[in-house]
């Protein structure tokens, strides 16, 4: 399995030409309590592209990222990831797809009670579903070595045998990135990966994430709250509002004023009464200002 298959798949895709790595059509989700978190999202992300997802609190970013691999079962719509129809996939195919999609979610996304190394080794469960990969002490030396390399890459090799709950917030996110590496993912979904970090640690984690995405030619969808980060890292910005796609453009095509407007809208998100208008303004300006 693994590298060889991945390469073969990559060749197939190259031959097929234009297939997007992530393709979403009419995606909708309604929570059991009736909240309509997503209302018809269309989104294509090309191989190797890095998309920053913006939006106010409760705009549906987390729901979208979780729905992509059906961690949350969407109520409607079509999803294709890396050529696989996710919605139609049976349990086994779904696990295979999930194995190819690494996730770095907000803060609590490690198992606190086990070692850092075990957490990284969990990344291999999608391709090698063996009970030996449940805990680091049971894993084969080849698996342990690979996991150590991944930890080395994120600069946390010395912490391998620590319990995960003894790490700082920034270190935890780096462990999650090491797990993405261990997964040998092709797509990375990150949900506010630096929301809980101070600006410096946040930058470090973002740098690392973007480097790794570039090194392995991964496709990235990353939700963010900090506009300045979006500005310095994103190729392309997608903004959600009330579960709808509000804006989709190259960061370079948006003028300073647009970004400032987005910033203002973002700052205004704390006021529940009027965030919509400000983001709406931004769209108008983006439409008139830029080619996209």
């Amino acid at each position: 399995m693994s590298r060889a298959t991945n390469t073969a798949a990559a060749t197939n895709r190259a031959n097929a030409g234009l297939a997007a790595m992530v393709s979403v059509r009419g995606l909708a989700h309604q929570y059991p309590d009736g909240t309509r978190a997503l209302r018809g999202i269309d989104l294509d992300v090309a191989t190797g592209e890095a998309v920053v997802l913006l939006g106010h609190n409760a705009s549906g970013k987390s729901t979208l990222l979780k729905a992509l691999t059906r961690l949350i079962e969407p109520t409607e719509g079509a999803i294709t990831l890396d050529g696989t129809n996710v919605i139609a996939a049976g349990p086994r195919d779904l696990r295979t797809v999930r194995g190819r999609v690494g996730t770095v979610f907000q803060s609590i996304n490690l198992v606190d009670q086990v070692s850092v190394l075990s957490n990284v080794i969990h990344g291999s469960l999608g391709r090698q579903s063996s009970p030996r990969n449940w805990f680091a002490w049971m894993a084969s030396s080849a698996t342990r070595d690979e996991a150590m390399e991944c930890l080395e890459r994120v600069g946390l090799a010395p912490f391998a045998s620590r319990r995960a709950d003894q790490l700082s917030g920034g270190q935890r996110q780096r462990v999650a990135i090491a797990r993405v590496l261990m997964q040998r993912s092709r797509i990375v979904l990150a949900d506010e990966p630096v929301a809980a970090l101070d600006p410096r640690a946040g930058r470090e984690v973002m740098d690392l994430l973007w480097q790794i995405v570039a090194e392995h030619e991964l496709t990235l969808v990353c939700s963010l709250h900090q506009l300045e980060l979006a500005e310095s890292y994103g190729d392309r910005v997608v903004a959600l509002q009330n579960g709808r796609l509000l804006l989709d453009g190259r960061i370079g095509d948006l003028s300073r004023a647009d970004l400032a407007g987005l910033y203002a809208a973002d700052a205004g998100s704390a006021r529940a009464d009027e965030p919509a208008a400000e983001l709406g303004d931004l769209v108008d300006r983006a439409a008139s200002g830029g080619p996209r």
Binding site: K66, L71, R98, R100, G123, L125, G126
Partner: peptide, 15 residues
């Protein structure tokens, strides 16, 4: 959190 982290790696229910 931890449960979704594991599900998202493609792990089986047992794992």
């Amino acid at each position: 959190g931890p449960i979704d982290a594991l599900r998202s790696t493609g792990a089986t229910r047992l794992s």
